[in-house]
């Protein structure tokens, strides 16, 4: 059993070790002076921040409704919310084009409103939000379901309306689970590749996020692989720092097993 655990651990860690074995800290820092890298890093962080703000803003109420209301078709709705999780990224990308693209279902309507999504940052945000939000929403549903209904009832009888009850009782009690879900969603969104490249394209400074830039560099001979390596190291550092920060924030409160999805694999 220990051998199996050691093998699994080594397998998961080895590619990361391999990246860093070939990138010196100096090379990694040097990446930050190249416009293609800084453009991609800034774009990645910016689109991720906007996408995650949307995920939190829209996903939280949706998750709360799904967790607390009993209505016909609720279980179907929960399954549908999770559906993008099992979609291959390429399928998600095609779907987004078919829906919001220039010749998509909503393309004409959006065009009429003067909105063109193709090759814009908005398209990146949509792609990132689409693939990452289910991770947050399903964890948020679990977190809201875990809040004792009697506490909500107690708050109401003590004179707090639904909104005040949500902010003073439900949200603080679900916070840990929500943060864990958001960490997953952010990590997944930051690494988003397939849907973005199909739906938003890969235009430096406009839609080229860090993963797209790495792929672009990788395809550029003769030194593409080495620069792609250095940029990968940078992305690992950024994602790792993010994960550690969120972990530390989560450690504030007494441990509850709401963070069990934090290290689940994501595509």
């Amino acid at each position: 059993m220990f051998a199996a655990a050691a093998a699994a651990f080594a397998f998961l860690l080895f590619p990361i070790v391999a990246i860093f074995s070939r990138v010196t800290p100096g090379r990694l820092v040097a990446q930050l002076s190249r416009p293609v890298v800084t453009d991609a890093l800034v774009l990645s962080l910016k689109t991720s921040a906007i996408a995650q703000a949307l995920v939190l803003l829209l996903g939280t109420p949706a998750a709360y409704l799904l967790a607390t209301r009993r209505f016909r078709g609720r279980s179907v709705a929960v399954v549908l919310v999770e559906l993008p999780l099992v979609l291959p990224p390429a399928v998600a990308g095609i779907g987004l084009i078919a829906a919001f693209g220039r010749f998509g279902l909503l393309g004409g309507t959006l065009d009429g409103l003067g909105i063109r999504l193709g090759l814009t940052q908005a398209a990146v945000v949509i792609a990132v939000a689409y693939v990452s939000s289910p991770l947050y929403v399903r964890q948020a549903i679990a977190a809201f379901e875990a809040v004792d209904a009697d506490l909500v009832a107690a708050s109401r009888t003590l004179g707090a309306g639904p909104v005040r009850t949500f902010f003073r009782v439900v949200l603080p009690l679900a916070r840990r689970g929500l943060a864990a879900g958001e960490a997953l969603s952010f990590a997944r969104g930051l690494g988003e590749f397939g849907a973005t490249i199909m739906f938003a394209g890969s235009l430096q400074g406009v839609t080229q996020t860090l993963p797209l830039a790495i792929y672009g560099e990788f395809n550029r001979p003769p030194h593409g692989f080495t620069t792609a390596l250095a940029m990968s190291a940078l992305l690992v550092v950024v994602s790792g720092a993010l994960l550690v920060t969120l972990r530390v924030i989560l450690q504030w409160q007494p441990s509850r097993p709401t963070s069990r999805f934090l290290f689940a694999p994501s595509r």
Partner: peptide
């Protein structure tokens, strides 16, 4: 009338104190 406007004091069986 919603619960918050009923002027009712309900003490729950396991008290339902806010843990946070």
């Amino acid at each position: 009338v919603p619960p918050e406007r009923r002027r009712v004091g309900l003490v729950f069986q396991d008290y339902a104190l806010f843990p946070h």
